[in-house]
Design a protein around this nucleic acid. Structure first.
Lengths: 121, 121
DNA sequence: AGTTTCATGTTATAAAAGCTAACATGAGCG
DNA sequence: CGCTCATGTTAGCTTTTATAACATGAAACT
C-alpha cells in the first residue's frame, strides 16, 4: 500500500466529525455498519474511528440510497462490483424506477439542507 | 485559500487521535495551547478539534522543544519567522547550547518509545 | 545550598460524546 | 390492512474530554 493509501486508511475520525463530514446521522452510520457496508476501527474504549476512505464510502452509500436503492442493493454494488463507475450493469426493475422517481421528487423539495454537495476529501 | 489548504485546515481531529498522531500528552497539548502555539477549534460542547495543520505545528513544536528551546523561544520562532526552515538566524546562546546537549543525551537513552520518526500527513 | 522557574505529571470533578438495545414511526408494497 | 425498511427516539451506561489545582524533578539563578 502506498503512503497516501495508508493515510487515507488511517482511522482518526470520530462519529461526530463523521456526521459533520457526511451529513448522515449516528443512527445511519450504525445501521450501514450493521450491513458491513463500512467497518470503522474501534478505539481502546470501543468507540468508532473512521478513515477518509470510510468517509468516501459513506458518501457513496448515501448517494446510492438517495437514488432509490435498498440496503441490500447498495451492498451488492459495493462488494461485488469493484468498478467505481456509477452506471451499473444491473437492469433497473420496474418498482426500482418508481422508487427512484419518488426519491428524486422528494429531493427537489429539500431546502435549508446544505448537506448534499460535498466532496470534501 | 486553495481547496487543499482548506482541507488541511479542517478541524476534525479529537484530542485522543491528536495524541496518537503526535505522541504528545493531553497535558502538553493544553500547555502549548496556553501559549497560543496552536489554536484548535472547539466543538459545540467545547471539545478541542485539531486540523492537519495543527498536527504539523505540534510536531514542529515537539521538535523544537526536544532540541532544547523554551516555550517562549518556540513561540518566537513560530510566530515571527514564517520561514519553514529549521536553521534559524538567531545565534545560539551558551546556556542554550548546554541545554541542547543535555536533552540530546537524554534522548539517546530513550528506548521503547516509537513516537519520534513520524511525518504522518 | 536554597529558591525559582519551567515543562510536565497527577488527581478530582463535571460535562460531552459515544455505545447498545429496545421501542416507535411513516412511507411503500403486496 | 399488515409487513418491511430505513430511520427517529429514548434510556442507561461507559469513555473521552474539560478545567483547575496541586505535585515534581531538573536547571537556572542567586
Amino acid at each position: 500500500m502506498s503512503e497516501k493509501e495508508l493515510r487515507r486508511n488511517l482511522a482518526v475520525l470520530t462519529v461526530s466529525t463523521t456526521i459533520k463530514l457526511t451529513g448522515l446521522t449516528a443512527r445511519q452510520l450504525r445501521y450501514y455498519e450493521s450491513f458491513s457496508l463500512v467497518q470503522p476501527q474501534r478505539s481502546a474504549g470501543n468507540q468508532r474511528l473512521y478513515s477518509l476512505n470510510d468517509i468516501d464510502c459513506l458518501l457513496e452509500i448515501k448517494s446510492y440510497l438517495s437514488s432509490g436503492m435498498t440496503m441490500e442493493e447498495v451492498k451488492r454494488v459495493l462488494t461485488s462490483g469493484k468498478s467505481t463507475n456509477l452506471v451499473n450493469d444491473s437492469t433497473v426493475s420496474d418498482s426500482q424506477a418508481r422508487k427512484i422517481f419518488r426519491k428524486e421528487m422528494l429531493r427537489i423539495g429539500q431546502w435549508g439542507n446544505n448537506h448534499d454537495s460535498n466532496n470534501l476529501f
